[in-house]
Amino acid sequence: MPRLSVLVPAYQAAQTIVPALRSTMRALPKDAEIVVLDDGSTDGTAEVARHVDDPRLRVISRPNRGVAATLNDLLDATDSELVARMDADDIVLPGRFARQLRRIEAGADAVFTTVVTWGAGRPGLPRPSAIGAEAFGLHLLLTNPVAHSTFLGRRAAVTEVGGYRALPTEDYDLWLRMAMHGARLHRMALPGLAYRVHPGQVTASAEWRRASWENPEIAAAYSALAERLLGAPARRITSLSIDSQLAPDEKTAQVAEFSTRFDAALLKCAPPARRALRRKLSERRAWLTRQLGEQEVVAR
Rank of each mutant, 00 (worst) to 15 (best):
A166Q: 12
R99H: 12
N144P: 00
F151C: 07
A69P: 00
R127W: 05
E105D: 14
A68Y: 06
L142F: 09
A147V: 15
V111G: 11
D90N: 10
A98T: 13
A135L: 10
V92N: 06
P168W: 02
R103F: 01
L174P: 09
P128N: 06
I131K: 03
G162K: 08
L152W: 02
D90Q: 02
Y172L: 15
A157I: 05
D173Y: 03
T114M: 01
F97S: 06
G163Y: 07
L82V: 14
T114E: 00
E81L: 09
D109M: 04
V146E: 05
R65M: 07
G163M: 04
F136N: 07
V161D: 14
Q100G: 12
R85M: 13
E81Y: 03
D171I: 11
A84M: 08
A147C: 14
R99A: 15
L82H: 11
A130I: 12
L71V: 07
D90P: 11
R99V: 11
L101V: 12
A130F: 09
V111R: 02
S129D: 14
E134L: 10
G137T: 09
P168M: 08
R177G: 05
T150C: 10
D73W: 01
T113Y: 01
T78V: 12
H148Q: 08
A69G: 07
R122S: 15
M178P: 13
F97L: 06
P128M: 03
V83A: 00
D89T: 12
T117D: 15
S129H: 08
E160N: 11
R103V: 13
T159F: 04
G95Y: 07
R99F: 09
G121P: 12
L176Y: 10
R96L: 07
S129I: 15
L71R: 15
R96F: 14
H139C: 08
A147K: 05
G132F: 01
D87I: 04
R99W: 04
R155Y: 12
P168V: 07
L75W: 07
T143W: 01
R99T: 11
N64P: 00
L174I: 09
